[in-house]
Simulated scan of single mutants.
Amino acid sequence: MEILDRVRGVERLIVKENQRVIALYKGKFHGVLTPGEHVLRADRGRLEIEWHDLARPEFASIFDKALFRDHAEVTEQYLTEIRAGADEVVVVSRDKRLHAVLKPEERAVYWTEAGPWTTERFDVAGDLAVPDKVQKRLTGVARLTLVTSVDVAEGHVGLLFVDGKLVSELEAGAHMFWAVTRKVAVKVIDLRRQSLDVTGQEVLTRDRVTLRVNLAAEYQVVDAVKAATTVKDFADALYRALQFAFRKSLGVKSLDEILADKVTAEAEAIAEVRTQMAAIGLTVGEIAVKDVILPGEMRDILNKVVAAEKEAEANIIRRREETNATRSLLNTARVMAENPVMLRLKELEALSEIAGKVERLTIHNGTAGLMNDLVKLRDE
């Protein structure tokens, strides 16, 4: 059969169900071959064949323009052409499942039998927001470069910029925008109360001692538009304002004054920081010095000073206690001198304490006749 076909100058083609063939003879369009067996004239290599697999439904052919220009009846029967307008985005679905997204003025051609094909058109000349019903479908599309998506968490706000211009504020939730004809950007601002630390800030005190201090401040964004558009970075602006304020306020104090009250800066400096930050949409809460770090030599000197002060305090306490004890003895002696009976009672009390510790006790006449003989305190 092959030899006979060769002699006859024909070629036999078998097209499967998932295939389509574009055939040209002598450079002219011959037709679209559908599933089945086809016998075509192929003498002297004048037959051209272009195979297409419907598993890839896009029609990609070097004969595309020629077919649509000269063979409208063929393209209408076998192909589906989709064009997006100058301000349109077209969502293409295949058998009700999203297949592709066409940006403005983009064209796509599909094999009609690979469908059915449906389209949804969206005008992007005005509102760039992607409808909620389309957002979830777009998530699985490979060409997500055509959209800008952002998730705004609770306690945050999103600022939508189109071509560098602020357009609107976005509430918490998932948002998606067409990014086809204009540049779309979303900046998310945290509206919750936050803290900022300024570490290792060097300060020269009034008595020319160099310190390093760690600062802390609490702040909150109350006007997201001002915070995002007035300065490049509002957190950095607060950081620098704190640096300048504490250098100014702590630089006029001596080391002793700073160590005595290190938790706050001057009220005037704090008020200045709050005023500056209010102008860019921030409210500033508590501002404090967390740590004061001294140079090594100065730390040793202060430790010696503190040790000397504590030693002096201990000496004062010892002297006070000794004075109180002496004063108590003097008062006791005065009472005994004025009251002989009390003196005798004290003697008996002393004898009682001593008797419990010794076996025998001899009392001489120094007790003025209290006991003149040897006293046997207990039996042998």
Rank of each mutant, 00 (worst) to 15 (best):
T275D: 13
G296L: 08
S328C: 02
V39G: 03
D223V: 06
E266Q: 14
E88N: 05
T118H: 09
T75N: 04
V32P: 01
R319A: 15
G85E: 01
A307P: 02
V292D: 02
T283Q: 09
K357Q: 12
E257R: 11
D256I: 08
F29C: 11
L13G: 05
D223C: 12
K187N: 11
E321Y: 08
K136R: 15
E311F: 06
V91Q: 00
L345A: 09
A224G: 04
D95G: 08
L211G: 01
L144N: 09
V375P: 01
V109M: 10
R83W: 03
V225E: 11
D64G: 00
E268P: 02
V124R: 00
Q243M: 12
E286Q: 10
A241H: 03
H364S: 14
F68L: 04
V209F: 02
E380W: 05
G173L: 00
E353N: 10
D373E: 15
V147H: 00
A288G: 06
T323W: 09
T139S: 06
Q77V: 04
V186T: 01
G356R: 14
R212N: 12
E202N: 06
L98F: 07
G31F: 08
K376I: 15
T229E: 11
V305F: 06
V10F: 03
T323K: 10
I316R: 14
R137V: 10
V284Y: 03
K290A: 12
L370I: 11
N18Q: 12
L98E: 03
F68R: 06
A350L: 13
I301L: 14
L361F: 05
G31Y: 05
R121F: 04
D127E: 15
D123V: 05
D123F: 07
V157F: 00
T118D: 11
R206T: 01
F234S: 09
V157W: 01
I22S: 05
D197N: 12
K187T: 14
A333Q: 07
P35D: 11
H99E: 08
A333N: 07
D291K: 11
F122W: 08
K346P: 00
D127V: 13
R12T: 15
D190N: 15
